[in-house]
Simulated scan of single mutants.
Amino acid sequence: MIGGKIVFKRAREKIFEEYIHKNKEKFFKISYIYLKNKEDSMDVIHESIVKAYAKLTSIKDLDKIDKWFIRILINTAIDYIRKNSRTILVEDKDMEVLINKSKDQGDSFNLLIENLDEELRLIIILKYFHGYKTREISEILSLKESQVKNKIHKALNLLRKEIEEE
């Protein structure tokens, strides 16, 4: 039976490795929402990978690895903020890059999203940029589905107002 456990463990590790490699840009975007700093975001991603790897045998359904890992990533980012207990501001150079990028693309939507509070911004990005369903977002963020729907509605109303003012 020991040989079967080793094969099972290696198969999980391979699936996990492929998942991490395939989704690294998504992980960066999500962690950056919280930390607003490239280096801190990378640290949180690496710490999340280590935590997830250590708990890899605890996930029963590998089809749910995405929700499971995103939850670890978000919790690690929140813990990082608490641990460092400092205000994280967007650096001027980062904001300039964002402004120039949106000008080049003719799309100021990214800037509008940056003006949303952290939770609303995360929900909008998970829903509209990564294609998560309301139910999945509620599981990831440990919120009720109705709360997620209300927050989506609130965020969209705020974005509409900003667009109308421009």
Rank of each mutant, 00 (worst) to 15 (best):
K38G: 03
Y32M: 03
D104I: 14
N115V: 05
K51M: 12
M1A: 08
L126N: 02
H46V: 10
V50W: 03
L98C: 03
I45M: 13
S41M: 08
I49E: 02
I49V: 15
L56T: 04
S142V: 12
V44H: 04
S146K: 07
S31G: 13
S102H: 02
K144E: 09
Q147F: 02
S142F: 10
V148F: 01
V50D: 11
K5I: 04
A11Y: 07
G3D: 12
S108G: 09
M95K: 14
A155N: 00
G106N: 08
Y32N: 11
G3T: 07
A77P: 03
V97G: 06
I15P: 00
H153M: 10
N84F: 13
L156Y: 05
R10A: 14
D63F: 07
Y32D: 04
I72P: 03
D79C: 03
M42E: 14
Y19V: 03
V90M: 11
G3F: 08
L73R: 11
K55T: 05
E136G: 11
E139G: 02
T57V: 07
F27Y: 10
I137Q: 01
F69I: 13
Y19F: 15
D104L: 15
V148Q: 01
I163S: 10
L126P: 03
K64A: 08
E136N: 07
I33D: 01
I2G: 11
K93A: 12
H21D: 14
I124C: 01
K93H: 15
E119H: 01
G131C: 09
A11R: 10
Y34I: 06
A77D: 03
K93C: 05
L89F: 11
R121H: 07
R12G: 04
R10Q: 11
N37K: 04
M1R: 10
V97T: 15
V7N: 07
K64E: 13
K151W: 00
I49R: 05
S108M: 12
L56E: 06
L112I: 08
R86I: 10
A52F: 07
E13C: 00
D40F: 12
F27V: 09
L143R: 07
T87P: 00
D61R: 12
I137C: 04
R135I: 08
I113M: 09
S146D: 06
K161V: 13
E13A: 10
K9L: 15
R71Q: 14
K29G: 05
Y132G: 04
L56I: 15
K9A: 13
K26W: 02
I74P: 01
V50R: 12
K51S: 04
Q147A: 14
K101A: 13
K101D: 09
G131S: 12
S31E: 09
S58A: 05
Y128P: 00
H46E: 12
K83I: 02
I20A: 05
I49S: 04
L120V: 03
I163D: 01
I74W: 05
G106V: 04
E91S: 14
A77T: 06
M95Q: 08
D107G: 04
I6K: 12
S58P: 01
R160P: 00
E119Y: 00
D63G: 15
K36D: 02
E162M: 14
M95E: 12
Y128A: 01
E18Q: 06
E164G: 02
K60N: 08
D94T: 13
R82Q: 05
L120F: 02
I49Q: 01
L141Q: 01
K103G: 00
I70D: 02
E119K: 06
K154L: 15
K127H: 04
T134N: 09
L159T: 05
K161M: 11
